[in-house]
Design a protein around this nucleic acid. Structure first.
Lengths: 307, 307
DNA sequence: TGAAGTCCATGACGATTACGCATACCAGAC
DNA sequence: GTCTGGTATGCGTAATCGTCATGGACTTCA
């Protein structure tokens, strides 16, 4: 079995695995069994005469050979899909751009930029999906996304160690904010001191295990009390409005705060800088993607100006 | 069955069929049965929801949809094969050029150009194969060749009706010549009159059926006597040397005439112009192919000068 | 320290697929 | 008619590929 005899479904499975980071997840996404995916990958590795995945506790990562195959597989599969569209008489998908975004960008920046783009370039179709930073980074590498809106915190590491490195452009850099109920004593002032945050009840992000505890003000010198955990921003903010606790929010989310919530800055501690960045593969960007990138940039700038 | 689910072997089979012009020939080349090829094509057409081949008495021709699929298939298969090479640690085949040639070019122009190129650009690898004009044209379209050296006779039609049209460059245009044994009465002069060709015995090219009878001087007002038929130039010329008959030769072959053969021009009839042309796909040429094209051009020019 | 959860690999089995063989069909040459 | 190109197709067999079920390695939690 030579590599020239690989099957397209094996390549498709491999791309999905590269994007999901897990055989099991890829199987779910494809409607296969984990077993089937495992076999497909095994057969692909046999054809390549080299391991393509490095098996780790929490899933898999691409090896060097894996990156080679992924890059090629993406162009092959894109070509096949383009053929299918061409045969079906559909216009080439030249006018669409695929954007991935981290949840914090979904409430304000994303709708504004997409609306602006629809006004200025009505012919461009934007399709987007939400995802975690690693998922979006993998999707960029797998060629499933053109652009990804990501959050980045100090020490502003590169998004992944792979090569070629992703191109990253900072759209906005502002300090982390605090969401408090308007009924809360702290809500009286425009800003609070970090010392006043001791003993508060917090609404955290994903349950636990995340490297840093999202939602709780970083660097507190106590073990925080987690009253609730929620991934969804709307839920989080309404929990805050209901007086269930405090939480941190990126400054860019401020315009979307519902009634009953005040967004404050926090003084007295180390500055907590947060970046909103736009990432993409280093290759030249297709035209519609470049236009969307422009729209995102100016939407981010507008966000900064009036503040 | 969607087109996105085609199998690579189906694409490979299809490319081979496009190149050979016949299911049976493709089957032979691939080591398959004609039956298997027929089924693969049928399955491909089912996936494409459109006939890709037009069945004719003497084989098949690509339909419009067939051309779409062929173009895509070529890039897909090339990508796959490049992946295989990359995985095997082989250098990308960037330094090689594939040339096809019509038999008349094989004795003089081809060896000279390849030798010159080896001197001037030793790092370029040239791989060549001989073939009939339609076979070479199909191979160009199937992406199996970068360049093709072809013979062309009035009325100098385009090589095929397909689009995009092939790029054709004339390397040399000279008149058809006549090969006679040195012992023949006609060999006394430098040229013969067309009237003297009546009643001669001829050595023709491929048996028959070819649109025009190769080897016999065109336009004779009699039914020529075919003494022998031979496709191979060495055989033909030695048959001439042995006094078995006369035959026509392209002027470019003159330097390769063996002892015992004289190459004469023919006066008194309509001028019989023959072109030696270099054909390729209209896309930009890879660097090594451009160098070989240069070498062929100058070899052809050198051939013309000293004449 | 044991139970439960994550992940991937693999043996057994069944359904589908894809091949080769033989044959049918069609059209042109003689 | 018969022969010689070509393609299509019924049939039997062998290989492929999915699912199911299980096992092994490891982490997390009580």
């Amino acid at each position: 079995m030579d590599f020239t005899d690989v099957s397209l479904v094996a390549l498709r499975v491999f791309r999905e695995v590269a994007e999901r980071g897990t055989l099991t997840a890829a199987a779910g996404a494809l409607g296969y069994t984990q077993s089937a995916v495992s076999r497909q990958i095994a057969s692909l590795e046999r054809a390549a005469r080299a391991p393509l995945l490095e098996r780790r506790r929490d899933g898999v990562r691409l090896t060097a050979a894996g990156h080679v195959v992924l890059r090629r597989a993406v162009t092959v599969l894109d070509e096949i899909d383009a053929t299918a569209r061409e045969l079906a008489g559909l216009p080439a998908e030249a006018g669409t751009v695929r954007l991935g975004w981290f949840a914090s960008a979904g409430a304000v920046l994303l709708p504004r930029a997409v609306a602006a783009l629809r006004r200025s370039h009505p012919s461009i179709t934007v399709s987007t999906r939400e995802g975690s930073t690693p998922a979006l980074v993998r999707a960029l590498r797998a060629g499933t996304l053109d652009l990804a809106l990501l959050a980045s915190a100090p020490p502003f590491r590169p998004l992944d160690g792979e090569s070629p490195p992703l191109t990253v452009r900072t759209l906005a850099e502002r300090s982390l904010r605090l969401a408090v109920p308007v009924t809360h004593p702290l809500a009286a002032a425009d800003s609070v001191d970090v010392a006043d945050l001791r003993g508060q009840r917090w609404i955290a992000g994903s349950s636990v295990g995340d490297e840093r505890l999202m939602g709780v003000w970083p660097g507190l010198d106590e073990r925080p009390v987690i009253a609730h955990t929620a991934r969804d921003w709307l839920a989080k903010l309404h929990l805050v409005a209901a007086g269930c606790g405090l939480t941190t929010v990126p400054a860019s989310l401020a315009p979307a705060a519902p009634a009953g919530v005040r967004i404050l800055s926090v003084k007295g501690g180390p500055e907590e800088r947060r970046r909103l960045v736009l990432a993409r593969l280093p290759h030249p960007l297709p035209e519609p993607a470049a236009r969307l990138a422009d729209a995102l940039r100016s939407a981010a700038a507008d966000l900064d100006e009036p503040a």
